[in-house]
């Protein structure tokens, strides 16, 4: 007996008057859409931050990693942070985030704890692998060191990024990440307009997004 799969594929082929050996023309090219004109690296970073701010995100440039402690202290005060969890990447480790947070009295929760425990954190700190300045988008990959829930469950999401992550357009990002099992584009804090079309920030995802460049 023919499987549902084969039956459906046969139906599709019959409808299209094709068979298994029909030739496959190439995909219509997207190349004729002229690439967006990008500014220099500095302009791109400014654009990225401007777009994130437009969406209700908060951005900050730290000229030196020594300023990190002050910045974290500010954040802790403004967002009333008591518990935090973070990516286990070398980038974040080298910045000594965990040590700073502990020293200012924030409790550190392992990102490998259960979802329920991670969800109780006030703050989740991640990096970002790429960024798209045109839309204010951060691209986050997934791995053991980069648990997906850190940018999703805590109330506040802080992404600490390197200055070299902006990419001109989606093409450049997809070229790098398309073989990944999972990646996510994050553009501003979570939002809805489902009740009387009133924009409400903070639904299921984080209510606040902070992006800092060092």
């Amino acid at each position: 007996m023919k499987s549902t799969r084969d039956e459906l594929l046969d139906k599709v082929r019959a409808a299209l008057k094709r068979d298994v050996n029909s030739i496959m023309p190439g995909v219509p090219s997207t190349a004729r859409i002229s690439p967006r004109s990008t500014g220099d690296a500095e302009a791109e970073r400014s654009l990225l931050f401007a777009e994130i701010e437009k969406l209700g995100g908060k951005t900050r440039r730290l000229t030196h990693s020594a300023n990190l402690k002050d910045a974290l202290q500010d954040l802790m005060r403004v967002e009333a942070i008591k518990k935090a969890t973070l990516w286990q990447t070398t980038d974040l480790k080298e910045l000594g985030i965990e040590e700073i947070l502990t020293s200012i009295g924030v409790e550190i929760v392992s990102p490998y704890a259960s979802n329920r425990v991670v969800a109780e954190c006030d703050l989740g700190i991640t990096g970002a692998d790429y960024a798209l300045p045109e839309t204010g988008t951060l691209v986050l990959r997934s791995s053991i060191e980069k648990p997906r829930t850190v940018s999703l469950l805590p109330r506040v999401h802080l992404a600490i990024i390197r200055p070299n992550i902006p990419r001109a357009d989606l093409h450049q990002v997809f070229d790098e990440v398309k073989r990944d099992g999972y990646f996510v584009f994050v553009t501003g804090p979570s939002r809805t307009a489902d009740i009387e079309l009133t924009l409400t920030i903070g639904v299921h995802g984080p209510q606040a997004l902070h992006v800092w460049a060092i």
């Binding site: 204010g136 099992g181 990646f183 996510v184 553009t187 501003g188 804090p189 995802g205």
Partner: peptide
């Protein structure tokens, strides 16, 4: 310009 979250699974 883009929705808040786009997941690629």
């Amino acid at each position: 310009k883009i929705s808040t979250y786009t997941s690629f699974i």
